[in-house]
Design a protein around this nucleic acid. Sequence first.
DNA 1: ATGGCTACTCCTAGTAGA
Length: 256
Amino acid sequence: MKIATWNVNSIRTRLPRLLAWLERRRPDVVCLQETKVADDQFPFAELAGLGYTALVAGQQTYNGVAVLARAGAEAIARRLPDEGDDAQRRLLVARVAGLTVMSVYGPNGQEVGSDKYAYKLDWYRRFRAFLEASAKPDEAVVLCGDLNIAPEDRDVWDPEKWRGQIMFSDPERAAFHDLIGWGLRDSLRLHRQEGGLFTWWDYRAGAFHRGWGLRIDHVLLTPALAARCHSVEIDRDERKGKKPSDHAPVVVTLAD
DNA sequence: ATGGCTACTCCTAGTAGA
């Protein structure tokens, strides 16, 4: 079983690449972030053409998450419990093939010390409480998404330059480790220990070409699923070519 | 070559991303 996560940075702009990638990769479940589209404009028909049903929690212009599945899928939650109808769409929880799948788009935070940074830390506090209230570590839970946090020095192209900056500040890293502490494993680190494994590269200054990346997109697994995790791949090729997202997909393979 | 931002909007300038 293949489970993937990809921040597509607009599903409408990325649709040709997304469809080609789905045809080639054939993942069973895909968590998408930054779809940037209202639910009534989501490209359901194009995805159905490849055999995928889509659950969506979208909004116009900003944010927006989705779960694509080749099997039947049921939405469990589309926002945090304390949020209203006007909430930023950053969370979709689904039941798919006996798994609880969470597509998460963590807030960016803009700059350490800003209002958005405070929102980011508060969002993670509230998400952590939701996780604890709605799931158990001995269940089959897959937390996928663009968390906008690089957990460790080896996840950043230049740790000294990034230390204390947005996505790499100590409180953000603590928020990530607090998720791990609930009972999740960082799937990539089950298999790969080296640095330089990045999932995001800035569009500017030829960052991809120069290897200036961060690992901020993650697939976290509860122990029962970690034991079934064969491999984790970052599809760097999706960052190449015409009109790429600034994020690459991450694909996890689980034994059946 | 993997290339020097991109995508959005009550759209041509301002905001957000990370």
